[in-house]
Amino acid sequence: MVHITFIDSSGEKRPVEAEEGSTVMEAAIRNSIPEITAECGGACACATCHVYVDEAFVPLTGEASPQEEDMLDFAYAVQPNSRLACQIKVTPEVDGLIVTTPARQG
């Protein structure tokens, strides 16, 4: 299992365990993480699973695809470390991943 910590907009930390090969969004939904809506169910079609990736993990989680960038246009307060959680794959390399959720998804 891979460890992921979600930090909400008020600073509360929620550590969870995620299965390899799943996505960060799926880990959030399975663990009822607040501030992740995932309206479209992981199709990279809605930008309601917007997260900020902790700077240390940005190189490990990779870059947003052009389609993901298009979707991020619909998110608010987008930063250079913004990603859609449904597009971040859970791999052993990202063990310990920390992501912060914005106060609003839409």
Partner: peptide, 8 residues
Amino acid sequence: IPFFGLTM
């Protein structure tokens, strides 16, 4: 005029 897509 903000165009941020649609939500349900």
